[in-house]
Amino acid sequence: MTASWPDIPYGPWRETCSALHLYSQIVGKYRLARTPWVNHSWHATLYVNARGFTTSLVPDGPRGVEIVLDLLDHAVIGSCTDGRTARFDLAPMSVAAFHRRFGDLLRELGATAEFHGSPNEVPDPIPFVKDKAERPYDPEAVTRFFVACAAVDRVFNRFRTSFLGKVSPVHLFWGSFDLAVTRFSGRPAPLHPGGVPGLPDDVTREAYSHEVSSAGFWPGGGVDLPAFYSYAYPAPPSFADAPVEPEAAYFDTTLGEFILPYDAVRRSSDADGTLMTFLECTYRAVADLGGWDRRRLDCATGIQRQPRPL
């Protein structure tokens, strides 16, 4: 265990996590509203950077705008390609107050403060402007969460180097509030039945238009503790019975996914290696049981300054 894998128990910061989730939705919906559609909703996501989560550069008329949720200095920071900047502090507030301040920040940048006004993929969604309950903000817990995300991002990015096929960036889906990385077999998938709470069926079906093996990280909520997951769409026969490592990993029949508690990674003598083992063996289960062409798709893990051997 090292400082790069901090303790992030979900219970003590549950309410702060919920608030941060909704704030990320507001920021993400600005990016979604301004960016042309990219396959599987990749245009909507946020990314880990050196200080928190970023939209990357969002096209907004003739200019570009970047929004950063700075989880070290605890601020929302906007920067525009014409040199303008704006910010406000992250602190205890309501979702409605965050929404108002974020709109003011966009207008200060000369950006377009128009985007969808209700959360997705949360139970009992309340329009942002009507969500006036005061929310806590625990800066120490938020920073620990960011440090954990930076560690997860590092391993996920290394994992994606050993695949020659189509593979997603490592990105934060603000709807479900999880960091994810997804590999594709290259084959079309059966039409997804839809029915994901708080997500339009056409969005879900486009996201799962092709066969996937997807892995990710939740801070909590999915299984009420910080955890990694791995699933397939469509799930191949006997996927739930596949042997996976490490020993702490298990198949959750309700979710239809393999789960590995974050603490099992954090407490291991080689946290990066333990997580990589989970990612690799769950992918192999999908690929082998699903008949993926691994000769064409797999390659050696990338090494710094060494071109991939042909």
Rank of each mutant, 00 (worst) to 15 (best):
F53N: 01
T54H: 00
T54L: 01
T54G: 06
L57P: 00
P59G: 04
P59T: 10
G61N: 04
G61Y: 01
G61Q: 05
P62F: 12
G64A: 10
V65H: 07
V65Y: 02
V65I: 15
E66K: 14
I67P: 05
I67D: 03
L69D: 02
L69E: 07
D70Q: 10
L71K: 05
L72S: 06
L72M: 12
D73E: 14
D73V: 12
H74I: 14
A75Y: 00
A75T: 11
A75K: 02
V76K: 03
V76H: 05
I77C: 07
G78H: 01
G78P: 04
G78I: 01
S79D: 08
S79P: 04
C80S: 15
D82T: 14
D82V: 15
R84S: 15
A86G: 15
D89S: 15
A91H: 14
P92T: 11
P92F: 09
V95Y: 02
V95P: 00
A97E: 03
A97W: 01
A97I: 01
H99A: 11
R100H: 14
R101W: 11
R101F: 12
F102S: 11
F102D: 03
D104K: 15
D104L: 15
L105K: 08
R107E: 15
R107F: 11
E108H: 12
E108N: 11
A111G: 13
A111D: 12
T112N: 15
A113E: 15
E114W: 08
G117I: 05
S118W: 09
P119A: 10
P119M: 11
E121I: 07
V122A: 08
V122Y: 08
P123G: 09
D124Q: 08
D124S: 13
P125L: 06
P127H: 12
F128R: 01
F128H: 02
V129G: 06
D131N: 10
D131C: 04
R135A: 10
R135D: 07
P136S: 07
P136H: 10
P139I: 12
E140L: 08
A141W: 04
V142N: 04
T143R: 13
R144N: 08
R144Q: 05
F145I: 02
F146P: 00
V147R: 07
V147T: 10
V147P: 02
A148Y: 01
C149W: 00
A150D: 04
A151L: 06
V152G: 02
V155M: 03
R160C: 03
T161Y: 11
F163Q: 04
F163T: 04
F163I: 03
